[in-house]
């Protein structure tokens, strides 16, 4: 039983980690805690739903398309909003994405009503047994997909020139700027990649999860806790935090009760951050 729960937890954690990675990247590069991340995951889920309804595009196979759409949206949002608050006070930087989140969630409710929707046809369907463990195929596909996207982003950040430039910004903005890195352009790209991560996660989630305007709120909050738990500014920390949270959620949901699973995640966050005020692997300023 424990093995079964742990597997479920890790699978869930993999999807969380993709959402968390986008958050962590955006925070690391421009110091913005994106409270709208969950709402954007929701938007990606709807994008996947409509692509499926009108173009019969499979949600799993459509992941790159949705990620690309979200990348574009990210660049637009960055140039319309984010760039203007970057030099503003701490509170404005924090509340702006709150406002964005409220706006997006209610826009979805206005356009598509609060009804629950679900994608019926997906290539990943059914369950199978792996030894003693019972595995749901859609979740396995989604977590593998998440890992692939995460690996791609990781490769992009570590191996390409643009990726290295983005990393340079998150280490020292002023020095990066002096080295001739175009901050404005790369910030935009980083924000776009962060949203593409949210988009990919949303598309993968859409293959097996209900879709409604408020669905992203918990994903966003959980991912945020994962990033904080891992420590702001650390991508590896975000991954570890997300998988830890996936495990806490499934174990807690089973042994304590499903209604308490999110409360347990938050409790874990508070306990860990009290012992380590900058998270498990965090560094830099608050």
């Amino acid at each position: 039983m424990l093995l079964q729960l742990l597997t479920g937890g890790v699978l869930l954690g993999c999807i969380y980690s993709l959402v968390a990675m986008g958050l962590s990247l955006i925070y690391g590069v421009m110091g913005i805690v994106n409270f709208a991340h969950g709402a954007l995951v929701m938007l990606a889920m709807y994008a996947s739903y409509w692509l499926n309804t009108y173009l019969h595009l499979d949600p799993v196979l459509g992941t790159p398309v949705v990620a690309l759409i979200m990348f574009g949206l990210g660049i637009v949002i960055y140039h319309l909003i984010i760039t203007k608050v970057l030099r503003g006070p701490f509170l404005a930087r924090m509340l702006v994405t709150f406002g964005l989140s409220i706006f997006i969630i209610n826009l979805a409710q206005f356009l598509w009503t609060p009804d629950y929707r679900r994608i019926m046809e997906s290539i990943s369907k059914g369950t199978f047994m792996l030894g003693p463990i019972f595995i749901e195929l859609p979740k396995l596909v989604a977590s593998i997909g998440s890992l692939i996207v995460a690996a791609l982003v990781y490769w992009f950040l570590r191996r390409t020139k643009t990726g290295l430039a983005i990393q340079a910004i998150s280490i020292d903005r002023a020095a990066a700027s002096l080295m001739g890195i175009n901050l404005e352009k790369l910030n935009g790209i980083a924000f776009g990649i962060g949203l593409a991560c949210a988009g990919a996660a949303g598309a993968l989630l859409a293959s097996f999860y209900y879709i409604f305007p408020d669905v992203g709120t918990m994903f966003g909050l959980v991912a945020l806790v994962a990033v904080a738990l891992g420590g702001f500014g650390s991508t590896e920390g975000a991954l570890i935090g997300a998988i830890l949270i996936g495990i806490i959620e499934t174990l807690g949901g089973f042994y304590v009760g499903p209604e308490y699973k999110y409360a347990l995640i938050f409790l874990a966050y508070v306990l860990i951050v009290i012992v380590r005020p900058k998270g498990l692997m965090g560094w830099g300023a608050d």
Binding site: G88, F98, G99, L100, I102, F103, I105, A108, F110, P213
Partner: peptide, 15 residues
Amino acid sequence: GIDLMIYGAFIVLMC
């Protein structure tokens, strides 16, 4: 949700 949409947009504009 229109009322909250306006509210959200207002927060963004203000920030």
